[in-house]
């Protein structure tokens, strides 16, 4: 395909460098975009653009690139939608500074991981948590989990999928909450 970087290199880079920035990215999007129902889609669009750029050349360092991509996306959307709210314009001006300044809040996923993942697990919906615990800690098969919980195997998978989504959101999207000591 004429791409400069292999898929597996980009995948590894993305997991290592970009995903840990998710909480910063989400804060950035939430602070600057008023329609909250669009945030998840915008995050995905940012990720896709960052990933595609990395297929040509891996941007270093990752953080300013990710935030600049988010900023450009917001600007493009405001332009395309043609209805510019005053609030959006004011914030976009401020973005120029925010995107270029590396903040001290860079998240290190490795640190305290176990405690954070444990905290995320505790916050899962009950059935999903049960499925995850039986799978990852008790090491049961799907069939065994189904029997233990008295539900069908497809339902096990359904709860598992739901748990996986929630875990990713908590581990990457909102670690501030998790890292908080009580």
């Amino acid at each position: 395909m004429g791409d400069g970087v292999t898929v597996s290199e980009v995948d590894a880079w993305f997991v290592r460098e970009v995903l840990p920035l998710e909480s910063v990215l989400m804060q950035f999007l939430r602070r600057n975009w008023s329609n909250k129902s669009e945030i998840a889609d915008m995050r995905q669009d940012v990720y896709v653009r960052v990933y595609e750029a990395a297929r040509r050349q891996i941007p270093q360092p990752a953080k300013p690139f990710v935030l600049a991509t988010a900023r450009n996306l917001m600007i493009n959307r405001v332009r395309r939608e043609q209805v510019v709210s005053i609030e959006a314009v004011a914030d976009l001006d401020a973005l120029g500074v925010a995107a270029d300044t590396p903040g001290p809040e860079a998240v290190a996923i490795g640190k305290d991981t176990l405690r954070r993942v444990q905290a995320a697990l505790d916050r899962l919906p009950e059935r999903s948590r049960e499925v995850v615990v039986l799978k990852q800690i008790e090491e049961l098969s799907r069939q065994e989990i189904a029997q233990r919980m008295g539900i069908g195997e497809e339902t096990v998978k359904w709860h598992m999928a739901k748990g996986m989504r929630a875990l990713a959101d908590m581990i990457y999207g909102d670690p501030g909450e998790l890292g908080r000591k009580s």
Binding site: L19, E139, M164
Partner: peptide
């Protein structure tokens, strides 16, 4: 990738 990476962390829970 994202779900898989997050899920990978839970394998460490076995250490508990």
């Amino acid at each position: 990738l994202r779900l898989e990476a997050a899920w990978g962390y839970t394998s460490r829970l076995g250490a508990l």
